[in-house]
Amino acid sequence: MSKTLLKLTEEQKQHFEKEGYLIVKGLFSPEELADIDATFEEISRHTVPGHFEPDWEADGSDPLRRYPRVMHPHRFNETAKKYMIHPPVMQVLADLYEEEALAAQSMFYFKPPGSRGQALHQDNFYLQVEPGNCIAAWTAIDAADEENGGLLVVPKTNTLALSCPDLADSKESFTTHYVKPPKDEKAMPVVMERGDVLFFNGNLIHGSYRNKTKDRFRRAFICHYANESATHISNYYRPLYRQNGEPVDLDVNPSGGPCGDEFEVVYPH
């Protein structure tokens, strides 16, 4: 038996350990979601060098030129940092890790109508958390489904080793990496309501659909975490933060992962 759980039931924890992912509802109040709405609506109106660099003259052929991802908003916006270390989320992570979680990364995706998705991949290929693993907390700011570019997961692939990716189809994915699922294992859609949080293991193979709608964004606030006992992480994700906001500096992971190269790539979903 694990120690006393803060937020999850034993059944939820077992589902995460077996399947590699778990949806948890009710971690954000309507007021908190409205706060996130307003914060990123304001950010979307300005260029933030190194974090959010839209093409204001974009012709619409690639919607992500006008609405690229916001990278590490916690580094320049206190509201983003507050929700990256949101206590209810951090408590779920403590249940999953059986120790304190450290926040490593925040991102926000607008994913407007017509946007490409992302090919299947594994998160810890990039974060390189050792020993242990990263866990993602993917919060649906808009309802997410197969039509507007919701997530895909390949259940039970959390037990697989990290793979060196192949080249993705650039017509469907705006990143270049693709990890092929094992034979007889298929990606399944994850349908989420506004405010749902999907937690998933860093080795789980996952990706996202293209947004095929004409009028629905698929906004998401996505953060990645490491276990407190980890000693190394890829340099891009340092420093990390405790729930109380205290910074923590893990050592830089010198490993290049399964491909033998240092990857400083940050992946969209």
Rank of each mutant, 00 (worst) to 15 (best):
P189I: 00
H224R: 09
D249R: 02
Y225M: 12
V197K: 04
H232W: 06
S234D: 10
N201W: 10
A230Q: 01
I205P: 05
K212I: 07
R194C: 12
A226C: 13
I222N: 14
T231E: 11
E246M: 03
V248D: 08
S255E: 15
N211V: 05
F199P: 00
N235H: 13
F200Y: 11
N253D: 09
R210M: 15
K214C: 12
G245T: 06
F200T: 06
C223T: 13
S208D: 03
P247K: 01
V252E: 15
P254K: 04
K212S: 13
P254S: 04
V190H: 03
Y209A: 08
T213M: 01
S234M: 09
G195L: 06
P189W: 00
K214Q: 15
Y237H: 07
L250N: 14
N203M: 10
Y237F: 12
L240R: 01
G245R: 06
A220Q: 08
N235V: 07
T231G: 03
H206E: 07
N227M: 14
H224P: 10
P239S: 07
T213N: 00
Y209L: 09
G256Q: 10
A226Q: 09
L198R: 02
Y237V: 03
V248N: 03
Y236G: 04
R210E: 15
F199I: 01
K214F: 14
I233P: 09
N227D: 14
Y225L: 12
R210N: 15
Q243P: 06
Y225R: 11
E228V: 08
L198I: 01
K214Y: 14
R242F: 14
G256H: 10
T213I: 04
S229T: 04
N201Q: 13
D249A: 01
P247M: 06
G207H: 00
A220V: 00
K212H: 13
V191G: 05
V197F: 04
R216A: 08
A220L: 08
F200G: 05
Y237T: 02
K214P: 14
R218H: 06
S255R: 13
P247T: 05
A230E: 04
F200Q: 07
R218F: 04
D196V: 11
